[in-house]
Amino acid sequence: MLMTKQKGMSLIELLVSMALGLLLLGAASSMALSSLFANRDGLRNMALEQEIQPIMSLMVRELRRSGYSQFATDDTTTPAKYFRKINMPGAAVTTVSGKKIYTGECIIFRYERPGSINNTLTSNEVSGFMLNNGQVLMLNSPTNLSINTCDASDSAWVPMNSIERINVTELKFIATTETVAGADLINQLNISITGSAKGAEFSSTLSESIQLRNLPRVY
């Protein structure tokens, strides 16, 4: 009776198989970790955008009304009746295709609020936005109706975000104007805001473009 000798894997073959298995396992683990980190970063980025979006929405809503007066007043000689006025302190001015472009980090504007239609400017009808040390500040009822500077030490400028939750690294206003009778009237305003979560290594930027149909005059 013939005996059949069974032959198994040699030590070298076993080692090669284990090495290939470890390589495949390592590749799969690397892909899984990459996917996990990507999902985590995506969720963090989404959360960051949700922190920035309310700030952007408020700025867009307020600025869209800038220059409004029910009586269409444009009396530049009477500060108490001049709603169509926007200040962009320190803004850089360039000219593109014959149009002046104002780019800055601060904007101050006026509009007549519902419920106080009297053709007279009051403190709650003067507002503005600026960036200061990671916070977006909003101008709230200044005592000086002709305010044209951005001074974070003025108590009328109040923060819109907590530095503990979000650090705003950039706030930019870009105004495209039309020159009418020597005055620069804003017809389009682009806003961009960039922020990062505390301790995060990434940032998120939101941008909006709005039409200013009241054509406020920029200074």
Rank of each mutant, 00 (worst) to 15 (best):
Tyr68Trp: 01
Pro54Gly: 07
Leu2Lys: 14
Ala92Gln: 12
Ala47Cys: 04
Met130Thr: 01
Gln211Lys: 14
Thr205Ile: 04
Gly8Ile: 05
Asp184Pro: 10
Ile55Lys: 01
Asn133Phe: 06
Ala32Val: 01
Arg44Phe: 07
Thr120Ser: 14
Gly67Asp: 03
Ile52Thr: 03
Arg217Leu: 05
Ala156Phe: 09
Gly21Arg: 06
Met46Ala: 13
Thr205Val: 10
Tyr82His: 15
Leu23His: 00
Asn118Leu: 09
Thr4Met: 12
Arg84Phe: 02
Arg61Asp: 12
Ser146Ala: 15
Ser29Tyr: 07
Pro89Thr: 03
Glu201Val: 03
Ser97Met: 08
Gly128Thr: 01
Ser204Arg: 14
Lys100Leu: 05
Thr120Lys: 14
Asn148Gly: 06
Pro142Met: 03
Gln50Ile: 01
Leu43Val: 06
Ile86Met: 09
Gln53Tyr: 11
Leu23Ala: 14
Ala38Phe: 02
Val168Thr: 08
Gln188Ile: 00
Tyr102Met: 13
Thr194Arg: 13
Leu20Glu: 05
Thr177Glu: 10
Asn140Gln: 13
Met3Ser: 08
Ala152Gln: 12
Thr95Asn: 15
Asn161Ile: 06
Thr149Ser: 12
Ala197Glu: 11
Ser127Arg: 10
Ile55Phe: 02
Asn161Tyr: 10
Gly195Thr: 01
Ser192Asn: 07
Lys85Tyr: 09
Thr205Asn: 14
Gly8Arg: 14
Leu189Gly: 03
Thr177Trp: 07
Ser116Ala: 15
Ser162Ala: 15
Ser146His: 01
Ala19Leu: 15
Gln50Leu: 08
Leu145His: 04
Gly98Thr: 01
Pro142Glu: 04
Glu49Ala: 13
Ser209Tyr: 11
Ser153Tyr: 09
Lys172Gly: 00
Thr103Arg: 09
Arg213Gly: 03
Tyr82Ser: 11
Asn133Ser: 13
